[in-house]
Amino acid sequence: MKKIDFTLNGKQTILDVEDNETLLHALREKLDIKSVKEGCSIGECGACTVLIDNEPHYSCLTLASKVSGHDVKTVEFLGDENLLHPLQEAFITYGAVQCGYCTPGMLLAAYSLLLKNEHPTDTDIKEAISGNLCRCTGYIQIVEAIRNAAGLCKCNS
């Protein structure tokens, strides 16, 4: 058992975790953050993507004990049903959501990109979401949504 002290979506969070517990498990089962999905469990699909210090990481291959002292963000950081983030609005507008399983991870990968690059090219966008698999949309709508959101949000302010 380890006590971890980290920032989750802007809030200081202290939690007891097992030594062999993944961050994915801790977020879903102990902190009730169900937006972080378990897909492949082996770091290939990206459904479990979270941002650690604003960079995408697969929470299925991250031990919860490793995030002590770090900043962790899930899609809840971006917005809620009352006030969606421009990226979330754009995903709706451009039809970038179908089954929705990849969407939280996809949004976080996109958000991380826009923090570093306010005007990404389509190649930059494709590169940034290359570790997040979507089996519904064919990606076209997702790339369009991110491209169109890029001009609208000041992610790093």
């Binding site: 770091g43 990206g46 650690i52 995408p56 990481h57 991250t62 990968a109 570790g131 997040n132």
Partner: peptide, 9 residues
């Protein structure tokens, strides 16, 4: 190598 997340990890 891998994907952005794998390169970060």
């Amino acid at each position: 190598v891998g994907s952005p997340a794998i390169r970060n990890m």
